[in-house]
């Protein structure tokens, strides 16, 4: 896949700059191609144009974590990510976390089991951050989990359940290896 946005205006290419971009990316395993305004955020692309509204907007300025998604397996804030930056990348959102048969990821199930949510608005971001936290190796104890999930605000205050869910899922993975 071409990792570099193509200009679709035809006029600006000589300068190297483009006012309209054509991007391709793989979102939750599906190929996506769209024309973009360069200022479009990955969050707005996902929510308003790809109908992937599981990813939430809580601040739009990188302050709350509700918009957390994975780009090439690593957690980022989609609100502060130019959609153009995801060109050629694999993007995973909350809708792409479950197994192919629709059964939830163990961390999703753990969030249910530990009641790690109340209103549920921050939950997709918490889960995407939690998955990354485990993959990064930052889920070895509670204090570390708290620290590495502190970028995800939960106004309902479901933090204890969130930590328990991440810890249990990480422990099960360690045990399973």
């Amino acid at each position: 896949m071409d990792r570099f946005p193509r200009d679709t205006t035809g006029s600006a290419s000589r300068s190297g700059f483009s006012g309209r971009l054509h991007v391709q990316m793989v979102v939750n395993g599906r190929d996506v191609e769209r024309d973009l305004d360069p200022r479009e955020s990955l969050l707005d692309l996902l929510r308003e144009r790809l109908a992937l509204t599981g990813t939430k907007k809580g601040c739009d300025h990188g302050q709350c974590g509700a918009c957390t998604v994975h780009i090439d397996g690593r957690r980022v804030l989609s609100c502060l990510t130019l959609a153009a930056k995801a060109n050629g990348a694999h993007v995973t959102t909350i809708e792409g976390v479950a197994a192919a048969d629709g059964s939830p990821h163990p961390l999703q199930q753990a969030f249910v089991d530990y009641d790690a949510l109340q209103c549920g608005y921050c939950t997709p971001g918490q889960i995407m951050a939690g998955l990354a936290c485990i993959a990064e190796g930052h889920a070895t104890d509670e204090a570390q989990i708290r620290e590495y999930l502190s970028g995800n605000l939960c106004r309902c205050g479901a933090y204890a359940g969130i930590v328990a869910a991440v810890r249990a899922t990480a422990a099960a993975q360690e045990g399973g290896c």
Binding site: T53, Q108, Q109, V112, D115, L117, G120
Partner: peptide
């Protein structure tokens, strides 16, 4: 268990926006 938890962890709940 919280009855809407499953939909919430799947990102399937529809909020206003």
């Amino acid at each position: 268990a919280r009855v809407d938890a499953f939909d919430k962890v799947m990102g399937a709940v529809q909020f206003g926006a």
